[in-house]
Simulated scan of single mutants.
Amino acid sequence: MNQPDLEPGDEVLVSLVGLVAAGQFECSADRHKPGLLAWARWLRSVDDAELERETRAAIYDSASVNGFQGNWNHEHFKASACWHEARRRHIAAGHSEDCRARTIYGRAHSRLMRDHGYAPAAAGRCRCEVTDG
């Protein structure tokens, strides 16, 4: 059996996907772990449009399995990892740690809600001095 090259709780894993997703990774079935690691590494390399598409899919899948019995941590891992990556990019763009403006994850979540007939909550205000160019 191929073992992932990172161990649960590994600092590299936490840096890559965040604490929540790292915990979900640890609780995932072993058969999912190599694929989850490859996917998380890939996620770091995609552009913002692809991240938003992947985030919508991950949120949808996580929400869809939420009511089912069993271990679905591999699905929840993806949504949590997308949140972490969106937040990482938001801060890398110059936003503060406490900025409440909508991230790529927030845009994906809002679009998914609208696509299913719900009205998303308004985004928080950004008071960061970030320029777009």
Rank of each mutant, 00 (worst) to 15 (best):
5 D>R: 10
56 R>V: 14
98 D>K: 04
64 S>N: 13
97 E>Q: 12
3 Q>D: 03
59 I>N: 05
18 G>L: 04
52 E>F: 04
3 Q>T: 12
79 A>H: 07
95 H>W: 06
79 A>N: 11
66 N>C: 14
38 A>S: 14
118 Y>R: 11
31 R>T: 14
16 L>R: 00
27 C>S: 13
25 F>C: 02
96 S>L: 11
132 D>M: 13
20 V>I: 10
124 G>K: 00
37 L>W: 00
37 L>D: 00
24 Q>N: 11
96 S>Q: 12
83 W>I: 01
89 R>S: 02
127 R>D: 15
10 D>R: 05
52 E>A: 10
61 D>H: 11
99 C>R: 01
89 R>T: 08
95 H>F: 08
43 L>W: 03
39 W>M: 06
10 D>S: 10
69 Q>G: 15
39 W>C: 04
46 V>P: 02
87 R>V: 09
104 I>V: 15
87 R>S: 09
38 A>C: 01
18 G>Q: 09
54 E>W: 11
14 V>W: 02
90 H>I: 10
2 N>A: 12
64 S>I: 00
127 R>L: 14
118 Y>T: 05
25 F>S: 00
120 P>N: 04
23 G>V: 06
92 A>W: 06
132 D>A: 15
54 E>T: 13
52 E>N: 02
88 R>E: 05
72 W>L: 06
29 A>T: 12
28 S>F: 12
88 R>T: 10
92 A>G: 06
85 E>Q: 09
116 H>G: 04
42 W>Q: 11
107 R>I: 10
93 A>Y: 05
43 L>P: 05
